[in-house]
Amino acid sequence: MKRISILLLLGVFLITALVVSCGKPKKVQEETTPPPVITEPEIKPEPEPTPPPPPVLKESQFVTVYFDFDKFNLRSDARAALDKNFNLLQEFPNAIIKIEGHCDERGTIEYNLSLGEKRAKAAMDYLLGLGINQARISIISYGKERPAVQGSNENAWAKNRRCEFKIISQ
């Protein structure tokens, strides 16, 4: 959010600079130009010989993995999600992550804690199988204590039976 607003500010600054340099007649046209202008400023420091700063991995880039009721086996869509997350972990070799296992509200607190742990472990084992180092992944279960969405219907439940990926360090 902060980043976007800074970029926007930069964009606005650029536009006003342009307006000032170009004079009055073009004013109206300049103002209607769409946001794509914003991306331009980043190209500027190119002549410097220093390497570009490493890209930053964000938690939102990971895909959430979903499960069936009272199950921890990986569905085909879950494996596809994990494949994407695997690619991210390959791309960012320093990232250390924690997989959070969650459940829907049905069933008891204790059972769901165990089930959430099994889900997180299933996701972790899949990534380990693809070759990710064990030292980079840990797991935690929240059972049904931290639902993603409120509600007592199949739609809400389906969204709550999940594994989320959290970044510990990178």
């Binding site: 204790e110 804690l113 165990s114 742990e117 797991i139």
Partner: peptide, 8 residues
């Protein structure tokens, strides 16, 4: 405190 989870 043990590795993994403690519950119930």
């Amino acid at each position: 405190e043990y590795p993994g989870m403690i519950a119930a």
